Computed example of a mutant assay.
Amino acid sequence: MKAWLICSHCVVVLLALVACTKPPLESEIFLSVTSFAELAGWRDDQHSIALEAFRRSCAKPLISKAPIVVLRSDWSLPCAATANIPRDDDTAARSFFETWFTPFSVSASAGTDGLFTGYFEAELRGSRQKDDRYRYPIYRLPDDHVSVDLGRFDRSLEGRHVVGQIDDGILRPYHTRRAIDSGALSQRGLELLWLDNVIDAFVLHVQGSGRVILPDGTVVRVGFAGHNGLAYRSIGRALIQRGALKRGKANWGDIRRWIEANPTDAMALLAVNRRYIFFRELKGEGPIGGAGVALTPRRSLAVDRRLLPYGAPVWLDTSWPNDPERPLRRLMVAQDTGAAIRGAVRGDFFWGYGPKALAFAGKMKSRGRYYLLLPRDAAKRRVGS
Rank of each mutant, 00 (worst) to 15 (best):
L14D: 04
K22Q: 14
L31M: 15
V33F: 07
T34N: 02
L39T: 07
A40E: 10
G41I: 07
A59D: 14
K60C: 05
K60W: 03
I68A: 01
V69P: 01
V69W: 03
V70S: 02
V70A: 03
A80F: 11
D89Q: 05
E98Q: 15
E98T: 14
S107P: 07
S107A: 14
A110R: 14
S127F: 01
K130G: 00
K130S: 01
E158G: 08
E158N: 12
G164K: 04
G169H: 12
R172T: 10
I180G: 00
R188M: 09
G189Q: 08
L195S: 09
L195E: 04
D200I: 05
S209C: 10
G210F: 02
T218P: 02
V222K: 01
G223D: 06
A225S: 12
R233K: 15
I240S: 04
K246H: 10
G253Y: 11
R256I: 15
E260Q: 15
L270N: 09
G289E: 01
G292A: 04
P297F: 00
P297A: 03
L301W: 06
G311N: 03
N322H: 13
D323R: 13
R326Q: 15
L331F: 02
A334L: 04
F349G: 00
W351K: 08
G352Q: 02
P355F: 07
K356D: 09
A357T: 05
A359E: 11
F360G: 03
K363R: 15
M364L: 07
L372K: 15
P375H: 01
